[in-house]
Design a binder for these strands. Structure first.
Lengths: 354, 354
DNA sequence: GGTTGGCACTCCACTCTAGTGAGTGCTGAC
DNA sequence: GTCAGCACTCACTAGAGTGGAGTGCCAACC
């Protein structure tokens, strides 16, 4: 750029994205204070920050440079500086010490997992509440995908004249069901017979890999039932097998913004399970753990940041944790909370005894 | 009250809660316009309303009387009138024609239920979205209670070394599960054996009425498994058997209020499943179908109104629909939508084929 | 007696005008 | 490169003035 006089301190110096030590300190101070106060930060507020032992005039000149380089912005002339998305990005990547939960929070987490009980779904639900409490953000928890879990049990339960329920238990403890309509009244014996044939065909396979069944057994009535049940089973695996999403603390979004419109559109996004799950997956796939502002493509969330953390059980990825807040969210805290809770959750899910 | 000169038009005249025909028309006009505009309504805006063929001066005098009687309020002197909770109440009870969905909405409902598919949970979830779309309110749908549904099937599926899953299928198609920890490794045969003893003990009973099992069969190992499983089964019935709640369109609350605080506290309530379910139940139990302002006891919802509608399947109550909006919500529309959707949902759930 | 037009009054919402203060950019000296 | 000093900018606030929507009251009317 021609406006930048002689880029004496910028990128080229010590490597890509590097910043003068003092400029980094100033940026750090601005971001930190802005996260706390949500007010534009002036040069005077920064002089006492560690690593910045210069006068406010010098700070001002550095801030001007930081603004030229896109790390800071001014809401208007003669106002303090606000971090840009790029500024937050630098903060997250190079500044902001690892961060850890405060003792109170750690205590909360410990207590939560010590007393955690119930089935996985309700635990994930409550986990989202815990995360929201810890971080004051909206928390999203995506449950483990059952795509690769093997079928442990298949059962057909008669419910009425011509209605039966297909109940499938997977190795990871998930239960899926699908009601099936039968062409004729079918007695329990035949139903059990069909179920055992179904089991022989599908037991041990992941639900997505159950193939169509062709070989008939002679009894046409049983064959029909089996055929219908196989179809139902396969439809379970193929269709909208969207991972389950739990959103906690969505009310915190209302506190984060004072523009009601923003709140509305953000909440609107949160209502769309598919969008949220895809979004979290996309962010993870790009290898990020934080997406700031417009870095993810979802336009209504432009003033938000998202922290994601995979949850792994015995080494394999089994879910995702997401934290949604304004771009001026407390990144170190959010990252620490996501990490701690993610780890503990992974441990918990891998314990045989729950 | 001494201020009321001679209560010539009030309650006493034609029965409890009755209002002069013209006053009723005026109240009607004020409520209707305020619902639309959210602005205080002046006397001039009312003179053209049907049933009010008098001058604005007369309207003013009537409005003053309505205010004395608590139906209207003024934000400040020299401002128009706003309905009070009592005013809304009168509107809902005596004014506001039955109301019906517009053709577009009716079409939407028809289409929705024609294409409705999938299991009950996902259908209820999507129903909440439909209701929110129709009414621009936040919709709450409480699924049928499984308290009285008889157990159709009980199964124990081994999951790991010492872990099994208890899977219970109820007559209404609901599936509940509970993982159980076993003291020892137990083979499939013994597990099946235990399950069949469990079935003999509980089949046909509602889950809440399964009693403790005492009679031993001689084989101590199987006995232990059965005992553990019975406990698990009973805990399923007793504990937090909270009806499932689906909330749709919570983002609409953000549009309804311009005070972010209100939005926040209302959303906070919506996050508490138990509170919401209890609230809806309480309102139904008092025989109301609309609760306005402080009529229900939940303080953070003081500026909200709730429309409730039971959903009955084959005559028995099987769920609840709730609509939450600001007190100035469109009551006729909300009531109509809740009724129509409730009816169709009830029908849908009673059809054997889904 | 209820209804009405007229009138004085109220008070919000808006505009305009300083005045204030936090903050900036620039400059010349060290 | 750093810094003190200085002029400048501009949001924010308070106060005054104004317009308008709306009211309450009253005397007159049917």
């Amino acid at each position: 750029m021609p406006t930048t006089d002689d880029n004496r301190t910028e990128d080229g110096a010590t490597g890509a994205g590097a910043l003068d030590a003092r400029k980094a300190a100033i940026l750090n101070a601005v971001v930190t204070e802005y996260i706390g106060s949500a007010q534009p930060v002036g040069s005077q507020h920064v002089v006492d920050a560690p690593g910045v032992s210069v006068s406010s005039a010098t700070v001002r000149s550095d801030m001007a440079a930081l603004e030229r380089d896109g790390y800071l912005a001014q809401p208007h002339t003669s106002a303090g500086r606000i971090p840009t998305d790029k500024g937050y990005r630098f903060f997250v990547d190079h500044l902001g010490r690892p961060g850890s939960l405060d003792p109170v929070g750690r205590q909360q987490v410990r207590q939560f997992f010590d007393h955690a009980h119930g089935e996985i779904e309700s635990m994930l639900e409550r986990t989202s509440g815990l995360l929201a409490d810890l971080t004051d953000c909206t928390a999203m928890v995506v449950g483990p995908s059952h795509e690769s879990a093997a079928i442990r049990s298949v059962q057909l339960v008669g419910l009425g004249q011509r209605l039966a329920l297909l109940v499938v238990v997977l190795a990871d403890g998930a239960v899926q069901k699908q009601s099936v309509e039968l062409p004729d009244e079918v007695d329990e014996i035949r139903l059990a017979d069909a179920a055992s044939r179904l089991a022989a065909h599908s037991l041990g396979l992941p639900i997505t890999q159950v193939g169509p069944l062709v070989v008939p057994t002679g009894d046409p009535k049983t064959d029909t039932v089996v055929a219908i049940a196989v179809d139902a089973l396969r439809s379970l695996g193929s269709a909208e097998a969207v991972d389950q999403l739990f959103v906690g603390g969505s009310s915190r979004m209302a506190a984060a913004f004072d523009a009601v419109d923003t709140v509305r559109s953000v909440l609107g996004i949160l209502e769309q399970q598919l969008v949220v799950v895809t979004l979290l997956r996309d962010i993870l796939d790009t290898g990020l753990s934080v997406a700031i502002g417009t870095e993810h493509g979802v336009e209504p969330l432009a003033s938000c940041a998202i922290v994601v953390m995979p949850v792994s059980v015995d080494g394999v990825e089994a879910g995702t944790i997401g934290l949604l807040g304004p771009t001026r969210m407390n990144y170190p805290l959010a990252l620490a909370a996501a990490r701690v809770v993610g780890d503990r959750l992974g441990q918990r899910l891998s314990e045989p005894s729950r």
